[in-house]
Design a binder for these strands. Sequence first.
RNA 1: GGGCAGAUGGCCGAGUGGUUAAAGGCGACAGACUGUAAAUCUGUUCUCUUCGGGGUACGGAGGUUCGAAUCCUUCUCUGCCCA
Length: 379
Amino acid sequence: MAALQFQLEKTDPGSKARTGKIKTDHGEILTPIFMPVGTVGSVKAVTQQQLMNDVKAQIILGNTYHLYLRPGLEVLEKAGGLHKFNGWQKPILTDSGGYQVFSLAGTRIIKEEGVTFQSHIDGSRHLFSPEYVMDIQRIIGGDIIMAFDECPPGGSDYAYARTSMDLTHRWLDRCWNRFHSTEDKYGYTQNLFPIVQGGTFKELRKSSCEFASSKNATGNAIGGLSVGEPEPVMYEICDWCCDHLPKDRPRYLMGVGTPWNMLECISMGIDMFDCVMPTRNGRNAMLFTTKGILNIDNKKWEFDFSPIDDGLDCEVSNYYSKAYLRHLMKAKEFLGLTIASVHNLAFYLWLMKEARTHIEKGDFASWKTEMVEVLKTKL
RNA sequence: GGGCAGAUGGCCGAGUGGUUAAAGGCGACAGACUGUAAAUCUGUUCUCUUCGGGGUACGGAGGUUCGAAUCCUUCUCUGCCCA
């Protein structure tokens, strides 16, 4: 049992893209990688078997806030951690609840000590201090756990971004101390990733990268992007952060994004992504395919009996037709949600595999330019 | 054969003299969704338009009224009850 290790493998000559291998006690992860989001211990509408066999996921996420509220720490601890509870034996990463500071802004109070959330389930109040968030994530048992941060909205001004970043840094110290004064609960090694903040301000981002890097963590994350700021700004800040984070550690861009977002950010040196987009948008009828994006609810697919996507190695995508999936979605059949989610996730994982292949071949940059255009095509 | 109830926009269903082109729901059509309070949310949904407005419309026909989906007469159809 050992801490996470990152082996850099190939670097693309035409960009800053790289391939690598992350080793955890629950197995290896080939990077760049996309991590399906399983907020409450379940990737919505998708079984663990489908994640393994169809999606070919290498690592999935869980969420501290949601899992803490339900099923709760007692169940998770008695189960022996989330891996045993949900049956996912590959790596798991848990987000800290920092994003909920952003997304549940209407029902939480931020203080120096931590954040008091009002449960979206029953209205009860819960204080999440950095220390408690570490304790919770110890109990959930993710292989990678995230520092507790404040994720400010994309349009935040300098003063707010600065204040918020400073708070996130103080919280990082507290997370770090708590994490290193507590032990792994289940016999395998957990890893704490710091999160870079600083809004859309390069000066702040640079200092946040330096602060995060000073922890010499086994990996680093970039947070606070794709939260309302324009896409070019997101790219600019992502690129800037990559340049100021250690090369020899995985860089995780939190919450991003669209397929083209991921290719652009891979070219800047990002290794890990997560996003609800393939699952949420899939449930809402938006499909990402090797030929472009489409809304499967649209009337134009009513008589299209061709496969959802025959361009990737996923049986679900190859087997079911667009017309059939449209029918399922229109009829609000559960199976439609599953097929759409499995397909979109399989596509995201396929895209990462293609990216790795092209980085290894050394033609990632040119391939990316062409692929981004295809990915954005509205079918 | 007799009695009662009813017929509203693609469907269901409010509305019982004027602010009603007609609530609401469904369906349909389109859009949004980026560390998941999301199988959610938003918009459009008679017709023509030079976007100011115009034309048709609440089973059919006729009538009362300044004005009718709303009141009266009659016809057609539907449901229930009695023979």
